[in-house]
Each structure stands twice: as C-alpha cells, then as structure tokens.
C-alpha cells in the first residue's frame, strides 16, 4: 500500500537526495583530513605491503576506509589473514611480492 502511494506521489526512495548525501559524505571525509582518494589508495597499498611482510593477508577481503563518527574522522581497517596460515614451503614468492603483483595501484603520486 505504502509503495503504491509512493509511486503515485512520485516519491523516490533512491532519489537524487540519497546520491547527494553519499557523495557528500565521501568527499567531506577526504576534505577534512586533506587526503584525496588517490592518495588514500596509495596509503592503503603501503599499509598492506607492510603487514604482508609479516603475515599472509587475505587480499581480496581487505577493507580499509575512512569513516565519520560525529565530527571525528577515522581510518577503519579490517584486514583478515589468509585462511591457509601454513605457507607452502615450495612457494618462493614472499607475501610482499605477491601483493605487489596483485596491486594495480598507480606507483606515482
């Protein structure tokens, strides 16, 4: 019923206002700490490279993002370890090399 009236009113729950809100939240969190998205990508790659030096990281499940809580901005990282914690001794690639090979981040700033 509610949906019917929403449609009748032309009300759009996914209207441009929600797009505006998402875009603003994204851009403001970068504005506030003066770290543009491209720089953040680089920083993430470096953080992962350091961690990967010590432990095997499940690269595809990594989530590092800026967040806003009230007026505090934080970098929230969820970095799960690789499920196969036992390394294959025959594998001569170190985790950091693996990461570099996987990374498609631009190397220049």
């Amino acid at each position: 019923m509610a949906n019917f009236f929403d449609r009748m009113l032309g009300r759009n729950r996914e209207g441009s206002a929600s797009t505006a809100k998402q875009r603003l939240q994204f851009v403001l969190v970068h504005d506030r700490i003066n770290l543009p998205p491209e720089k953040l990508k680089e920083m993430k790659a470096e953080i992962l490279a350091v961690i990967s030096k010590y432990v095997a990281v499940a690269q595809e499940e990594v989530d590092i993002a800026l967040q806003q809580r009230d007026h505090n901005n934080l970098l929230v990282a969820e970095i799960p370890f690789s499920k196969s914690l036992v390394q294959d001794p025959d594998e001569d690639e170190t985790p950091i090399d693996k990461f570099k090979a996987d990374s498609d981040q631009p190397q220049t700033s």
Partner: peptide, 19 residues
C-alpha cells in the same frame, strides 16, 4: 522536493555536517 527524495532533508544535512 524533500518528500520526493530529490532534495537533502534537514536530517540528511545534520548527519553530514554533525552540527
């Protein structure tokens, strides 16, 4: 426009700006 979802609502704006 707010009701149609085509303009940021007062709550949207205070969420974003946290004031």
């Amino acid at each position: 426009m707010v009701k149609r979802g085509e303009m940021l609502s007062p709550t949207d704006v205070t969420d974003i700006l946290a004031i």
